[in-house]
Design a protein around this nucleic acid. Structure first.
Lengths: 360, 360
DNA sequence: TCTGGACAAGAGACCGGTCTCAAATATAAA
DNA sequence: TTTATATTTGAGACCGGTCTCTTGTCCAGA
């Protein structure tokens, strides 16, 4: 008799109130878990709600409270293990704190990032974690702050923005990796990044719009400069965005004179591509050439030889970013903090001394 | 004079209407892009909106329209490459269709899945894509349909539920892989899954609560039965959830008599662990033992030898699931469809004939 | 018995949009 | 010029919750 067919309209507090024979306000109090109600009434309402299979409309709730309980995350590419691990860290922390996560992909493109941010703000997310595709364009990020939504930058930081960020200690990590290669006797060290650029070669590291890449490049450069290597910049390459382009980058690099004896890959995807390129060229690691990759990815332990990597605690970075954001969400009025998480070099088998001794 | 400080309250249609000296309804019409308005008024309102930096409140919008423009996705583990690739496929399609994606992790646990589903329904998602952790418990999935939210199952299907699903052709894929091993002369083929279970051994494949795993196991079993292998079930193992347990599983398997000469891994994570176990035991692939893994993961191409895999077009599966859901969202009233996407066997170097000939 | 404070329940405004319907204005037909 | 028909614009209800404010009860103290 009670509408056996699929009920189209969902049951509301008013419906429950009617069924429990109390006012809407009272039903709302028990259903919403606020205010005070007598045990008797509470039981009545609870029973009615159960009978009607009441489900609160989170949307309506958010509208009046102004809080959506959602954290927006804009990443470069969820398919990349780096980001999916980070997202895992973020959402684990978020869930514990009662927040949900809505994810948007920017594909590392500024326009996509802008519209993702707009959209998330429109959805009234309580806070935002963004991996800015470019660190030199940030009007849209300024806007976020202006509308009063807390923001935490992930993996890359923009000091001018005056906002929290969680990144790796990219400069140090790169410098450490480079010194390790220098100590092994390498004098010609190349750095390969997937950053899209007009030219494979780098003209000025300050022009790199991605702060993580910039820091790493500068770490590599500084460490070499400190060791007296001249013009290390000639071995820095960009644009290794896919296998074909990486093959080209590696090929060009190997045509340089003197030929680089060690390669540093900017992230695990680039690392994998570089490894394949080298393999395709029939070069043996580390006998013919040494390599180090950023990120302790899956594949780096099962290759022959296993790859020496700069290990970033990505999951923890994600967690930290979420924790930071949530503290702010809870009204904590703390100073802006730029956290650089410490990384470590995991020495495996892909680095050895350069082929024929090490002459400058 | 116009409140130079950070405006706490956001600007609404009413604010814009006031500034443009028109009614709220009219302002809403141009801002919401519906109904008709004269060009003159439209310009006025648009200008006012721009001046005030109006941003629509998507929440309020959703409340009246009843559509949130959000697709909820519940996956087993976003950190797993399988799911992150699928999510990528889903969100690419969703974005093109004007939908957003909100992701929840179930960790393959029923309770977490239930609460994720509840929460997403509360957020009034327009539709749901779920990877059910168990195919034998589905009350909460029934509930989804009862409240009228379209649902598409991903990777696993539950026929009794009468709902769309997109999976791999797991039975056939497993059977094909098995036949390939049989043709190579293997007579003792093991199957290793990460499905959590009380016992490593399998008693009855019909009890497998994950349909994808069940299908694969049955494929492996049937193919062997057809080849006259007796009691193939003795080599099926569960619970390879982490490296330690995988090491144990592999060790136990190698203690069987006769010892299995080929291993099939249920997914790329298990495959990687099995590879490491084998490597740790000093076994050489494929000379000592052959292996096949599901999913064409990164690492499978850079090992020595590269791994023969069952390639699932995961990204396409994600896309297909999203497309299916969106068609339903657009009111299309189509019959329930269980799509099994065709997979293929990529033959690489990890399969050879068993060690000392092949005697039954 | 009367007053007052504590507490429970009800009425109704509000959040920021959408949308229906009526009023006002413009355009076309008679 | 008048009437009929579009075409815009405005007023206000509504979505489903939260929350403030008011009213009504109950019980203790004077």
């Amino acid at each position: 008799m009670e509408e056996p067919l699929a009920s189209k309209r969902s049951v509301t507090v008013a419906d429950v109130a009617r069924a429990a024979k109390v006012s809407k306000a009272t039903a709302a109090r028990v259903l919403g878990g606020y205010g005070v109600v007598s045990d008797k009434i509470r039981a009545q309402v609870t029973a009615a709600a159960a009978a009607l299979e009441y489900r609160p409309n989170e949307l309506a709730r958010s509208m009046t409270t102004g809080k959506s309980g959602i954290i927006g995350v804009v990443v470069g590419d969820i398919e990349n293990a780096f980001f999916s691990l980070a997202v895992r860290g973020i959402s684990d922390v978020a869930r514990m704190a009662g927040f949900n996560v809505i994810i948007a992909n920017s594909g590392e493109e500024l326009e996509a990032e802008k519209s993702a941010v707009d959209l998330l703000i429109g959805k009234r997310v309580d806070g935002l974690i963004v991996t800015p595709a470019r660190c030199d364009r940030m009007e849209h990020l300024r806007d976020i702050r202006r509308v009063g939504v807390p923001l935490v930058l992930f993996d890359r930081s923009i000091p001018e923005l005056g906002v929290d960020s969680v990144t790796g200690d990219d400069f140090d990590a790169a410098a450490t990796a480079t010194r390790y290669l220098l100590d092994a006797g390498h004098r010609h060290i190349a750095y390969i990044s997937a950053m899209d650029a007009a030219d494979e070669r780098l003209t000025d590291s300050r022009e790199l719009s991605n702060s993580a890449v910039r820091e790493r490049v500068e770490g590599v450069l500084k460490a070499q400069a400190a060791a007296g290597i001249e013009d290390p910049q000639r071995y820095v390459r960009l644009g290794a965005t896919d296998q074909a382009r990486t093959d080209a980058v590696v090929k060009h690099l190997l045509q340089e004179m003197p030929v680089p004896t060690a390669l540093v890959a900017s992230d695990s995807l680039v690392g994998l591509r570089v490894f394949k390129s080298l393999q395709a060229l029939g070069l043996s690691i580390p006998a013919d050439i040494s390599m180090i990759s950023f990120l302790d990815a899956d594949w780096t332990t099962v290759t022959t030889p296993p790859i020496t990597v700069v290990d970033q605690p990505v999951y923890e970075m994600g967690k930290k970013a979420a924790e930071r954001l949530i503290s702010r969400l809870n009204g904590r009025d703390m100073p802006v903090e730029r956290t650089a998480v410490k990384t470590s070099l995991i020495k495996r088998g892909s680095v050895a001394s350069p082929p024929h001794s090490s002459e400058q």
